[in-house]
């Protein structure tokens, strides 16, 4: 009978109440059964504003269990604000183990990147989605876009891509590049760079997408065909970088441009911090890697990435911030068009 105040004022496991979880779980189940179709759900208010990943957080909260190991990335990085906050949130409300290592994670919540390390069966990738409707900028009315999906009427999307070619000579869409899932639904892969689109195709991991403000959940089951829309004479191509990562020397990975000073100094580094750390641990060195990098092993738990320390010791230049700021200049070199509105979440 002596109930402590602390006993009363606790949250349910993983923050959401059980009825909300059941509602979200039912939506996830239908989403998996209809790949690429956006299932409406009763999105809840979360203790963070819309635009910070409330959709992804609700999906993660509904699937996570005490045995899960969670990794959260924001633009590929484990150490940026959004990733650190969401990881801390789940540590607090679900008391789950967290990691920065892609291989060890069972659930990876991501904002706009797919890790470079190949995912394996049993892993779940949860995307934070700002605008789930790929046709929204072409047709603002929900009643109309719903009908277009119902009738599989996607001509407008091809017109948009064609107009890109007419104007720029090539398809200038570089992120949120529309895909067709299992030959039926056109889907927004969330604002991931198109570099990551091929990784969605026939992935062994389950991919779940949550859009909190827009109240939609959708899914791509493992081993599902995900094809980027293109034309025979203008086939889909991913971004190419003309230099390797400045820290780990990796090629064929997605790079972020980091501004180093106000004199035009800049470097390109892996967007995936875990991948970069792993490679440097294995002895790979880029042309701007510090000479005597401390051998500090990257912590497998949450916390500031050891990469920061490494960079601060860089002999020649002192980068003001090792990461691009949230919402600013992510790989400007590569993105020709960067609609601010798509940047929201």
């Amino acid at each position: 009978m002596n109930i402590q105040a602390t006993d009363i004022a606790t949250y349910n496991f993983a923050y959401l109440d059980e009825q909300t979880k059941r509602m979200i779980r039912r939506a996830i189940l239908k989403g998996i059964a209809i790949p690429g179709y956006q299932v409406p759900f009763a999105s809840r208010e979360m203790p963070m504003p819309y635009g910070w990943g409330t959709g992804g957080v609700q999906v993660t909260a509904s699937i996570i269990g005490p045995d899960d190991i969670l990794k959260v990335i924001d633009q590929g990085a484990d150490d940026t604000t959004n990733a650190v906050s969401i990881r801390a949130f789940f540590k607090k409300v679900a008391d789950v183990a967290v990691t920065t290592e892609t291989e060890k994670a069972t659930i990876i919540q991501t904002r706009h990147r797919i890790p470079e390390a190949p995912l394996h069966a049993g892993q779940v990738l949860v995307y934070q989605v700002p605008i789930p409707e790929p046709l929204r900028f072409l047709e603002p009315r929900e009643t109309e876009t719903r009908k277009m999906h119902a009738l599989e009427e996607y001509g407008l999307m091809h017109v948009k891509l064609y107009e890109d070619i007419a104007r720029h000579g090539h398809i200038a869409t570089t992120y949120a590049y529309p895909v067709k899932v299992e030959g039926r639904y056109v889907m927004d892969p969330s604002p991931t760079p198109k570099f990551d689109n091929p990784k969605m195709n026939m992935s062994p991991a389950l991919q779940l997408f949550g859009a909190g403000r827009e109240k939609r959940i959708y899914a791509v089951p493992p081993f599902t065909k995900v094809v980027s829309l293109d034309f025979e004479d203008h086939p889909f191509e991913i971004q190419k970088f003309d230099q390797p990562c400045a820290l780990c020397g990796a090629e064929q990975v997605y790079l972020d441009e980091v501004i180093l000073d106000d004199k035009g100094g800049h470097m390109f580094v892996c967007s995936d911090t875990d991948h970069c750390e792993k490679r440097r641990e294995d002895g790979h060195r880029g042309h701007m890697a510090p000479e005597n990098e401390s051998r500090a092993s990257p912590s497998s738990s949450a916390g500031p990435s050891p990469r920061k320390d490494g960079e601060e010791e860089a002999p020649t230049l002192t980068p003001p911030s090792p990461r691009p700021l949230r919402g600013e200049g992510k790989g400007e070199g590569q993105h020709q068009t960067f609609e601010k509105s798509r940047e929201a979440e």
């Binding site: 059980e18 059941r22 509904s62 699937i63 269990g65």
Partner: peptide, 15 residues
């Protein structure tokens, strides 16, 4: 926890 365990089993089976 039981509901979570059963849900994950069903989710994995559906996926």
């Amino acid at each position: 926890f039981d509901a979570q365990a059963v849900f994950r089993a069903v989710m994995d089976a559906m996926a």
